[in-house]
Each structure stands twice: as structure tokens, then as C-alpha cells.
Design a protein around this nucleic acid. Sequence first.
RNA 1: GUGGGUAUAGCUCAGCUGGUAGAGCGCCGCCUUGUGGUGGCGGAUGUCGCGGGUUCGAGUCCCGUUACUCACCCCA
Length: 456
Amino acid sequence: MSRIAPLSGFPELLPAQRAVEREVIASLSRTFELHGFANIETRVVEPIDRLAKGGEVDKEIYVLQRLAAEPDAKAELGMHFDLTVPFARYVLEHAGHLEFPFRRFQVQPAWRGERPQEGRFRQFTQADVDIVGRDELPFHHDIEVMSVMVDALSRLAIPRLSFQFNNRKLIQGFYRGLGIDDVTDAIRVIDKLDKLPADEVARMLVERVGTTPEQAQRCLELATIRVPDDSFVERVRALGVSDELLDQGLDELAAVVRGCRAVAGDRVDVEANLRIARGLDYYTGTVVEVFMAGYERLKSVGGGGRYDALASDGRTTYPGVGVSFGVSRTLIPLITDGVLSGSRPVPSAVLVALNTEDDRAVSTQVASALRSREIACEVAPSPAKFGKQIRFAERRGIPFVWFVQPDGSHQVKDIRSGEQVDADPRAWTPPEEDVRPTIISTATPSSTARDTEENQ
RNA sequence: GUGGGUAUAGCUCAGCUGGUAGAGCGCCGCCUUGUGGUGGCGGAUGUCGCGGGUUCGAGUCCCGUUACUCACCCCA
């Protein structure tokens, strides 16, 4: 038993696993940049009164304090529990130096003191993309930012994802048209649909929100609409509720679904799901939750939406729209299940063998020649028997071993096939797929939820 | 925060109604005096989570404690 015990909820990856995470983050970043989003990194801490706005997450905030602080001193700094709150502060603080609409992406850890579980950690990495405007932000940015995430995630070799969209205006307009007063509370109850049976939810609407049984029934009918295209518009209209805000919500949702379908490849589904609400009350239009096939138990692996007041300094309001992807939540279960793995735990593509300790300079020169052409390599640690040196490479997943012959010529051996050929350190190049550690994925584009479940 | 489970070698685990610590895999060496993987032979490794109690004797029983883990709650 080792003295060092793991800390629950603070996952650490082994080198090959970390290679997977790094490649995923690099891929996401490349796509975000392809769409013109700039990267920022915000500080880890925020003043606690800015983080704690009276929500449930308040007590989960990790506090940062000097060890030498006065015993009765009240902590002033807390670690951020998402990337949206720090971003809102960043926008206000640097508004004078930013160009609006401001498009940024951010990949950083966040901290939350919840009980850890599968896909749920106390320290976890998130990838956020947002667009924020000054005073106003045209609706087409909703389509844009959602499309960016659809594009980014569709490039990952992970199980099939489903983007499920809804629109707060649609819900609010519908409820208002029905004559329901407390829209927020009604939404919160409808959100329980995936846990409670429909009649139970209907009863709660009547008892807790004060709707009539007829109103509750219409709410349920709306919430059960789920289609992969804009045909939901007709189905909602068929429910016979009319409201100006409802019409606007229908138009927006239809546009988002159409726009995202256009960029979704064969790895990503796009749907309108009128039960999606999101618990947070600052969303004002588009809302989205992302689910992964075979991993429905993780709940959403991403989510976001439109907020008309991301930030405000009292004079200027900054509306925003964005979506966030749970990097740790998604990747760690996939790595644990063996769906994703790294091809090797070291970057080296070549191990340069060492004949004798006196020959180290010769081997180092070979390594330099390879490195000058961007080939990652390392020199063997000791002039052990070649069998040992090959085994050293094998253990680390290094695919090639380089030998300097007694006559000064060179040979390189692919230790997987055993094939050994003459080679020139100034010209030889490994096959493209061996240059860097890569992600090995058993998830296929055609895999469906059922396939993945059966494989578990 | 509430409730359950678990804690023994690097890893996965066995260890009966209490009798002095085990397997597989991995690791190291040799067979194999300069090209690995298969095979054979040999070898090393444990505060049995921690503290207390019962007992002639505790990995095993009792109490406490800590950590991990699963479920609920909630979220990425």
C-alpha cells in the first residue's frame, strides 16, 4: 500500500492518457480558431461576492486564503466554478480594449466542491466558446456560435453526440399564451420530466405552480415534442396557443436547428427538443444541451445558450451567447472504459541506440539530425545489449530504433514488424501516423446509442 | 449534506469457525557474449489503511477513525 492516497475528485492522467486530452484540446482550439475565435485565459480566483450570486453552487465554492491570514479573517477569494462568470468579469474589466462583438474561446479547469462521481469531478476542464456584444448582439450569432461547437465536436473521435436545442422565448411565450404566471417555476418542474413520470409532473404543475390541469396538459404536450428538423413549428402551432414571443422563439429555434444541421457531419445529431430548459435562469433565448450516445448516465456533456445580460456595468449591457463542453466529464469516462487511448506514453518516435558510452556523441548527432527535421527522438540511456535497448523502446511504445553500424553507416528498425533498413539521418522520415502520439479510438461514426450500450 | 460498500505485493485479487502472508500479471536475473517479443529456470517486494479493544495468539472478531468508492441531490 502506497503512502500516497489519491484525492477524490482531482483526477490525474498518465502520460498516454494525457496525450489524448492534449490532442482533443488542440483539435478543439484549432477549430475555434478556424472560426475566428481568439483564446483568452482568465485568472483562477475571483472575489467571492462576484462568484456567489445566491445560487446553489455557492457552498461548493473552493476558497483561497493565505495560511497566515488572521484566524477570524473572512475569505475574499474563491476559485471559479465555471468559465462564464470569470468571462463576464473579464469583459467588464477590459471592455475598453476589446472589439465587439467579441469572440473568444477558453479551455481551463474549474473547481466545484461536489461529491465526485463518474464524469463529475472537483477539478475539471471545460472548453467554452462565446460571442458577446455591446448593448446588442444580433440573433445570427446564436446560429454561429452553436455551429462552431457542432463543427469542433464533430471532428473528435468520440461516440456520437446529440445537440438538443430549445428556446426560452418559445417556452415563455407558450406559457404566457396559456396564461401561466410563474414561468420560471413551471420550467423548473418540466425539467424533472426525465426523472418523474408525466402524470407526476402534471400534478406538480397544478399543485406547486398553480396551473389548471388543462394548462399542465398543454405544457406536457409541448415538452414531448422532439424532432430532428424544423417540423416542430407546425406541431407547436397545432397546439393552438398564440403569442408574439412564442412566434419569435419558434423562428429562432428553427433557424438554429437548420443552421447546425448544415454543419453537422455524420458524428453529430441535431434536434429540437422542447423539454430542454436548463436550470439556470439567466438564459433568455436559445438553449442547448449536448448528450453522448451510450453515456446518457453522464447527463449532458455540454450546454449553453443565449443570455441578454451576460454582464452589465450599470450603463452598458453586454449580451452574449455561448456553449461549453465538459472536456474532463467526456474524456475521463471514455479513457477509463478504453474507448480512447493514447498510441504511446512518450513523444519519441525514434530511440537512437548507443553502442558504447564513448559513442554517445555519435548517437547524439543522429538525434540532432532527426530533430532538425521535427522528428521527436531520444538517445538510449545506457549502452546495454541491443536486446535491452530494443526492449526499452518497446516498453515506451517508441516504434523505431536507430543503429549506427561499426562502419559508420546507419540502419533503422521498425520494432513492430522487425524490418530493419539502411537509412540516412538527414533524410529518413517515419510514416506520418508515427510522427506523434495519436488517439486510438474504438468509437466509430456509425456507432449508435444502442451499439455503444451493448459494447459495455 | 444523507445512505451503502471497500481497504492485503507495482496492478487485479484470494486468505474458511482466529494459529504467524499467498496467486496471477508485472518487474529483475539466467538459459541467450551485442537485435526485443514466445518458451524454460530462478529471484526480489508487504507497518494486511490508521488507532484502540478482546485473546496465549488478530489480516480474520469488536469499537473508533481516515481514505477510496457507489447511490441520492445537483451540475460540465
